[in-house]
Each structure stands twice: as C-alpha cells, then as structure tokens.
Design a protein around this nucleic acid. Structure first.
Lengths: 213, 213
DNA sequence: AAATTGATTAGAACGCGTTATAAAGAATTC
DNA sequence: GAATTCTTTATAACGCGTTCTAATCAATTT
C-alpha cells in the first residue's frame, strides 16, 4: 500500500516537498499539447505523427507526455471535443433565423453531413480511430457534454412535430435521424468511390421521411 | 528498367528457371493464412496478433507473409469478404418464404443490425480498421462483388414500392436505408453506453418511414 | 548434371508506442 | 541551508510492423 502524504487527515497541514501539479497546470499543459497535436494530426495524419515527434514539437520529452496523457489515443480523444465543438458551433449559426423547424432541421442536417465531407480527416479522427484496439471503444464520444449537443436535432424534430407528438416518438425519430446522418456521412466519406446520389438528396429524403412529409 | 523474362515476346517459350507461383497457389496460401488470421483476430483482436505470431501459427516466416500480402491491413481486408459473406448468407435465409416485401425488408434490416450487435469484433474489423492511417481508406469495401450483396435491400424496396415508383426514388430510398442501417449499427455498437431505444424500435421506424407507412 | 529462376528462410535493422529506472531540476517546509 | 517531495530528463529496453540483404531451398530448362 502506498501512502499519499497529501491526503493526510484533516487536510489543513501543507505537504512538505514540492507541491503536485495544479489541476489548472495540468489542464494548461494538456491544452498546449493538444493544440500542437491537432495541427500535426490534421496535416500529416494521426499515425504519421510519433510521440517522440509530438513531444519535441511541444517542447518537452516523450516521457513528459506520459505524465499528462495515458497514451497516444488519449491525446486524440482530447481533440474530439475541439472538432465536435467546432462543428456544432457552425450548426448553431446555420439554424439561427429560420423560424420553420422543418426547414431548419434540413439545414442542420445538410450542414452536419457536409461538415464531415469537408473535414474527412476529422471524421476519421472522431469516428474511426478507436477500432483495431477493441479496447476503450465503448467510451467513444462518451463525454456527456459533447453528446448533449446532438440535442439540436432532437429539439428541432420535437418542434416540427408539434405538441401533439408522443415523447417516445420524438425520441425514436431523433435517434433514427442522427444515426441516419452518421450513416450517410460514413458512407460518403469512407466509400467515396461509390456513385452515391449525393449528400443533399440523401439528407433531404431522410429529413422528409422522418418528419412524415 | 527491370526486364521481366516471363513476358518475352510471343509468350510461347517456357521460362528457364523455377516457375512463378500459380494464381491458384497464391489464392490457396492467402486463404490458408486468412483462415488462421480470422480465428486469431476474433479471439484476441487485430492489434494484439502480431505478424510474427501469425506467421508462426500459419507455419511460415514473417517474410513469407509479405510475399502474399502487402501489409498487415491487407490481411484484414481479405476477412471482410468472409464476414460480409457470412452476414448476407444468413440474411438470405431470413428473407426466404416471406411474400410481403415490406415485412421481408423489416426482417432483413433487423437481421443486419443484430448481426453486427452479435459480432461486435467483426464490426470493428470491417468498419473501423481503416482509419488512423488515412491511406487506402477510400477503398473501403471497394470490392464490387461484396457491394452488390447490399442489393437485397434495394430490390426489396423496389418490390415494396411497386412498379409505379420512379427508379430515382428507389435509388435514393435504398441508399438512405442502407446508410440508416449502418448508422444505427454504428451507434449501437460504438456507443454502447448510450441509452438507445434499442435495435428493433429504431429499425422499425426507419423501415416504416422509408416505405412511407 | 548444370544452370537458372523464383520461393523461402534467417537475421539484422529502423522507427514506432510504451515501460522502467536512475539521475537531475524545481518548489516547498523545516 | 537542509530535507523533502514532485517533475522532468536521459537512457535503455521490449515487441511491434516493415524493409533489407544474403543464404538456402525447390522447380524448371538446357
């Protein structure tokens, strides 16, 4: 059993030696590394950027990276927040000023799919970097705060269906809608050689069917 | 410029030394290796099985593997055919004996999603092993013969919609349907912690909307 | 049998992610 | 300043995918 001197009973007395890293210090360093990592991963791909290289670009030793990140994949995970944040920030702008929820839903959906088509590398970063390992994959995008941003689609569908819609219907429709969008993005991005009808027709069809038009 | 003695003008005269491997020999060896690889990958995961290990299990040297496969990922790609073949063979059995195309479509769709839920490792194998590298990803499932098997959904939808349906509508609906199924599978498999409504409600909703019921 | 050509093997090597260990540096209390 | 505690560095090591080279083996023609 290792003793943790910091956690002495009472907690009033200061520890003796150098204090451990502040949560803020850790966050700053992680952000700093993630920033450099995002540039490098986007430019050269996740697999092509080595830990040793990233460390030297970030101005530290490989070993130091392992102080702040569990492993290389852990660095990648930090970037999901940035990418998804960027995506949904754009979608928020798309949706504003459109009173008709059905029209707004269509615009959001198109924006969502087209974002991934315009940022294919980011799609791979977010949706296709977990496989192979078979571990920690069920945690995919497991951050609740990130997940919550998908609610724009849900609330839009709820509004379009009106107050008379049953909540369970709204739920199922929302999940099918988001899954459908992800499936369309997956198809167009990963199977780019296939002669798809195109993003707009597919998204329009999905939106129209979900809303029952 | 290297000369290829085999391709001498005319092609009638035999080459002098040991003949190159027959297409059949290559196919046999690839099949043999792929068979062992499928077992190992399923049991221990793609990343955990090393080339050195696979070679020794297959009864050859690592170097020999590189004679028959371009790289480790190339071995994985051979397995997609097996997995997808297995999946669609089962679906064929599901669909038989059901005259109503709408009901048949629903059964096929449920079978499709549930197959991936029951074979999560295979889902990762097929859909999530390409990322990271950012190369050879656009070739994903690029085999035309494999891709053609997705036509079961298309023909089922065409039959359900009847002869009066416009071909373009059938095309768009089929693509949205398949994408929707893949999206549902992706969501349920990779985000297993999320409280989804479940595979059946989602698939039913998608099927009903696509068919316009 | 000799020569030739390709398949296979053996072994070293590279950079990779990751782990381990010991030394050096920094920040705090006594 | 001394002691202490944590961070960072330096360095070696492991197995990995992959490449390279030289040697050996196998199958064919002359």
């Amino acid at each position: 059993m290792k003793r943790t001197p910091k956690a002495k009973a009472g907690g009033a007395g200061r520890a003796r030696g150098r204090p451990a890293l502040t949560a803020g210090q850790v966050a700053d360093m992680r952000a700093h590394v993630a920033s450099r990592a995002l540039e490098l991963f986007r430019a050269e791909g996740y697999a092509s950027v080595s830990i040793r290289r990233l460390a030297s670009e970030a101005g530290c030793t490989p070993m130091t990276l392992y102080q702040y990140f569990e492993n290389k994949f852990d660095i990648l995970r930090m970037l999901w927040a940035d990418v998804l944040g960027d995506l949904f920030d754009r979608l928020d702008e798309v949706g504003v000023g459109e009173p008709d929820p059905a029209v707004r839903l269509g615009a959001l959906a198109e924006g969502y799919v087209e974002y991934w088509l315009e940022h294919r590398e980011d799609y791979f970063l977010v949706f296709m970097s977990g496989g192979v390992s078979q571990d920690d994959v069920s945690l995919f995008m497991g951050d609740a705060a990130l997940l919550a941003r998908f609610d724009v689609f849900r609330s839009c569908i709820a509004e379009a269906l009106g107050a008379r819609a049953r909540p369970e219907d709204v739920r199922v429709k929302s999940e099918v809608f988001v899954c459908g969008l992800n499936g369309i993005a997956q198809g167009l991005v990963t199977l780019s050689g296939y002669p798809w009808a195109g993003p707009r027709p597919l998204v329009r069809e999905l939106t129209a069917r979900i809303l029952g038009r």
